[in-house]
Amino acid sequence: MMETAPGIYLTAFLVGLLGGVHCLSMCGGLVGSLTLGLDPRIRRDPLLMLPYQLTYNLARIAGYATAGALFGGLGALLLQLDAFQVMQRVLYGLAGVVMILLGLYLGGWWRLIAVVERAGAVLWRRLEPLGRRLLPVRNPLQAAALGYLWAWIPCGLVYSVLITAVATGSVLDGALVMLAFGAGTLPNLLGIGFLAGAAARISERAWVKQVAGLLVIGFGLYALWQLY
C-alpha cells in the first residue's frame, strides 16, 4: 500500500473552499431549486430549513466519498498491475501534476482543468432525469437523494480531485480525500447564514484566488520533489 502524500488532504480542502465561486456559479441553480421548492413556512424560518440544507449537503459529500472510494480502489488495482515501485512513482507523479493544474485553475492562470467537466457530461445526462423527479423537495429524505445525485454533476474541480484520489492507491484514502474536498465546499454551498456569504465574497477576490493557487501549486511541486 502506498503512503498518501503529505498535504493531499489540505490541498483537497483548499480546492473545495477556495473554488467556491466556481461551485456557486455551477450549482447555484440546484441550491435555488431545493430552497424554492420547500414549503414557504420552512423557507421563512432558518431553523426549519437547516435540516434540509444539512441533509442535502451531507448527502452530497457522501456522494463525493463514494466516488473517492471507487477511484482510490482503481488506484489500488493499478498498483497490482505493474511493478509496485514503478506504479507508485507514476501515481505520485500524477497527483503532483494534478495539484499543479488545479493551482493554475484556482489562480486564474490556465483553465485546462475545465476540459475535464465535458468528459462527465455523458454520465450526468443519465442522472439528471432522476434529479428532476425529486423536485420539489418535500422531506429531508428527498433532499438527501438529490444531494447524493448532485455529487456526480460534471465539475472540473470534483473530477480533478478524483484523479488525485486515484493517486492515493487506497479505497479509504480516496474516500478521505473527497471528504476533505466536500468539507471545503460547505461554507459556500450550505446556503444559510452570513458565513456562506462572507466566504463567497472573500473567495471572489483575485489575490485570494492567486494565493490559493500558489499554495496548491506548492503542494504539487513538493509531491514531485519527493520522487527524487
Rank of each mutant, 00 (worst) to 15 (best):
V137T: 02
L146C: 06
R132D: 11
Y148R: 01
R111G: 09
A114H: 01
I153W: 03
S160A: 14
P136C: 13
Q80S: 15
W109Y: 15
L157M: 07
A95I: 07
A151W: 09
Y159N: 03
V137K: 02
V90N: 01
L149H: 03
Y92G: 01
A59W: 02
L123M: 14
Q88D: 15
W109P: 07
P140F: 05
V86A: 11
I153C: 05
P140T: 03
Y105N: 05
L106W: 02
Y159M: 04
R132H: 13
G147R: 00
L70Y: 02
G63V: 07
Q142K: 13
R133W: 15
T66L: 13
L106H: 02
A65F: 00
R132N: 12
Y92P: 02
L104Y: 02
I113N: 04
A114T: 09
Y105D: 03
L157S: 00
D82S: 13
P129F: 11
A114G: 04
A119E: 04
G107Y: 04
G131M: 11
P154A: 10
L127V: 14
Q85R: 08
G68C: 11
V115I: 11
R133P: 10
L101T: 03
R133F: 12
L79G: 04
G120C: 01
L146G: 01
L141S: 12
A67V: 12
A65L: 06
L112E: 08
Y64V: 07
A65C: 15
T66H: 01
R60W: 06
E117D: 14
A121N: 12
A69H: 03
R138A: 10
Q80F: 00
G63T: 01
L91P: 01
G108M: 11
V90Y: 05
C155Q: 08
L78P: 00
L127K: 11
R60A: 09
W152A: 07
E128C: 07
G73M: 02
E117S: 11
R118M: 13
E117G: 06
A121D: 13
A62T: 08
G103K: 05
G147A: 13
Y105C: 01
R111Y: 12
F71Y: 10
I113K: 03
P129Q: 11
A83D: 15
L102C: 11
C155A: 09
L104P: 01
L77R: 13
I61D: 04
S160D: 02
G120N: 04
F71C: 02
Q80H: 11
V90L: 09
Y64R: 06
F71S: 04
L146P: 05
V115K: 10
L127R: 12
A95E: 09
R132C: 03
R126M: 12
A83H: 15
A143V: 02
R125N: 13
V116N: 00
N139P: 03
W150D: 01
M87T: 06
E117H: 03
V115H: 08
F84R: 13
Y105H: 12
W110M: 15
